[in-house]
């Protein structure tokens, strides 16, 4: 019923899910991304948080870091929401819908990082929060330019060779996703992976990786 005309990049549609005008789909390419995100969401859901031990050199003393149930619960919720938003972004067949899922990934990433009570990490979460909020400007501006110049938002029509999407809209979309997916930079810089509650941090990396791969596919196909 629905078919992609250009199948060089991602192959033909395997399945589609219609929600009114928003018709989500899976191709072999996006199906791999979807399964990848789903597996890591399940890992985040069933795993217990890591409790690190710091050993003081030159003695027998060591510190154990504690993770409260409250914090673990919140991080697990945010990790699950992040995974669902990532899967939604992969599944989406509509540009505006995709930008919304991307913005949701950005918000949940802030939530995962901000739940750790450490001054250094919270400073970085604040910086990332500003970046994610600035990033929504090019993200939604890209979608707005696409709808103004082509008159539609559906990827099924935008991917056909008849419709030309302006270069600046593609650039805006890419740098918008770049800002939302910048969280791993902060995670690495602030050494958040060493903070308590490590498995949930995984979702930050997974979501940004998957979203980058998806936005590149969208921009090349348009």
């Amino acid at each position: 019923m629905y078919e992609l005309e250009n199948i060089n990049i991602e192959g033909q549609v395997v399945t589609f899910i219609p929600f009114g005008d928003i018709v989500g789909y899976l191709t072999p390419y996006t199906a791999i991304l979807f399964i990848f995100a789903a597996v890591f969401t399940i890992i985040a859901l069933i795993s217990k948080p890591e409790k690190q031990v710091d050993i003081a050199f030159g003695g027998d003393a060591y510190y154990t870091k504690n993770v409260s149930v409250k914090q673990m619960r919140f991080q697990r919720f945010m990790a699950a929401a992040c995974g669902l938003a990532t899967m939604g972004g992969v599944l989406s067949g509509d540009v505006f819908n995709f930008t919304l899922f991307t913005a949701m990934v950005g918000i949940t990433n802030i939530g995962i990082v901000a739940s750790i009570k450490n001054r250094h990490i919270l400073d970085n979460a604040y910086e990332y929060g500003i970046l994610a909020m600035v990033g929504t400007l090019p993200l939604f501006a890209g979608a707005a330019i696409i709808v103004a110049t082509t008159g539609t938002l559906s990827m099924w029509i935008l991917f056909t060779p008849l419709v030309t999407v302006p270069l600046v809209a593609k650039l805006l979309l890419v740098i918008g996703v770049l800002a939302e997916g910048m969280a791993p930079v902060y995670v690495a810089k602030a050494e958040i992976t060493r903070a308590p509650g490590a498995p949930f941090i995984l979702m930050v990396h997974v979501s940004s990786l998957v979203l980058f791969l998806r936005v590149i596919e969208i921009v090349i196909s348009m």
Binding site: N124, E127, I130, L131, V134, G135, L137, P138, I145, T149, P166, L167, V168, L171, L172, I175, L178, A179, M182, V185, Y186, K189, A190
Partner: peptide, 26 residues
Amino acid sequence: QNNLVRVYSLLVIFVIIIGIATLPLI
């Protein structure tokens, strides 16, 4: 990492300038 917001903002301004320059084509 405190500079990243500034670097990113410059990138956004750069892309918006490209957008303004190519505005007659849109």
